[in-house]
Amino acid sequence: MRILIADDEPAILMSLDFLMRKEGHQVFVARDGEEAIQLIEKELPEVIILDIMMPKIDGYGVCQQAKALKTTYQPAVVFISAKIAESDIEKGYEMGADLYIPKPFSNRDLVKKINELYEKLKN
């Protein structure tokens, strides 16, 4: 599976990148919203993991643009954010997210949820 990860925290990007590669996915990383959108347009990844508070374009914006890119392209979107108020989570799902994972997360949990999502996608 092809995964795009966008976060402006290099350390978090580093660990997510490692985890996803270990699971055997092909990973693209972006440091801000603009870079993320460019990569999505080019690579059309099946899963997009997004931080919300990012420079240039925030996670919500990236999510919306990705979903509106092509009718044939329907990626799964996962928000990973330090915004953990109920209203934030609600907003995330309203924006069309498939998963909303609050920071800090447990690696095992994260990997499990994303694999489940992947299984669901295949069916």
Partner: peptide, 13 residues
Amino acid sequence: RSPITSIRSLSEI
């Protein structure tokens, strides 16, 4: 939350 996230995640790895 941000530094805690990376510390936790990297240590788990």
